[in-house]
Write a protein that binds this DNA or RNA. Sequence first.
DNA 1: AATCAAGTTCATTAATTACTGAACTTATTG
DNA 2: CAATAAGTTCAGTAATTAATGAACTTGATT
Lengths: 161, 161
Amino acid sequence: MRKREFYIEQVGLFYENYGLPRMAGRILGHLLSSESDAISFEELQKSLQASKGSISSNVNLLLNQKLIIKHTIPGDRKTYFTLSYNSLNAIIEEKAKSVTAFRKLFEKGIGFHTDQHTPKHEILSEIIHYYQFLEKEMPLLKEKWENKRKTIHNDNRKKSC
Amino acid sequence: MRKREFYIEQVGLFYENYGLPRMAGRILGHLLSSESDAISFEELQKSLQASKGSISSNVNLLLNQKLIIKHTIPGDRKTYFTLSYNSLNAIIEEKAKSVTAFRKLFEKGIGFHTDQHTPKHEILSEIIHYYQFLEKEMPLLKEKWENKRKTIHNDNRKKSC
DNA sequence: AATCAAGTTCATTAATTACTGAACTTATTG
DNA sequence: CAATAAGTTCAGTAATTAATGAACTTGATT
């Protein structure tokens, strides 16, 4: 299928645009567009025509980001990968961390000011407050989603009965 | 002041970690830690000991991201830069765009599946729902912040009377 | 008009990062 | 215990990206 290969490259470029390795994007593109749940290391390597080294390091990068999960089967030497069920939480938690890092950076910056009553100090304080607001809201958003998700699942169960 | 230079380098490295040019981070670091509201191109160049070319391109990068604003004064050839009052909205809107881009990528991926009743299809659908949820919630969050901000400002006005 | 000042553009250089492929580790099988 | 299979590690290379510095543009000043 020609189109699927094109899609995989597209995801690769999308990832590259994000500052992450193109190959990591290709791996995700393959997982996303594949019908089968688990994909082997070998399949990734052959299908993406990449070196084992590149697959190894990029698969580990995606594992670190909790975007994929590693699976093994008894009596099978191979390693398989699936998209993470938990990737949603991983995404929000990653963002939360970076918001906190940003806030700390701003707080440090403001620390160099001697006068607290400048327009500049006011802007910076507001941005810091905004980050604090986000840090408080993000867990709430996560909760809200969990609740909504439950109701969707209940609805589905009702429908299929 | 020794410490401030260290801080500026720290912001530079932080930005580099984000996949953005180190110099752009240094510029932000300078703006954050400076007492004065507006900083001239010349001051950035001299203080950061960089070439005009590098300051020019990185200042334009930050302008594109709406993190800083360009100012001019009649009778003055120089250009000045301040931190953007609007950077908060810029940040949320940027995130919203990337969530939408991600959702579309997932939808395309799912389009290659022939069977809609696999566990994999279920995970991907859930992730797509989650992104749709975020797309709906982000504007609400922005509103919530605007309201909160107003009440903070009102409180401040009361206190100072 | 000629000069100067403030930025931009762009070719070159420096530095970084991703990828390959070969050597290595670890575990399994005949 | 040799042979094989699956991944990892790492040195070297290819490709990308950032920064410099000089030439250029634009607009103000004499």
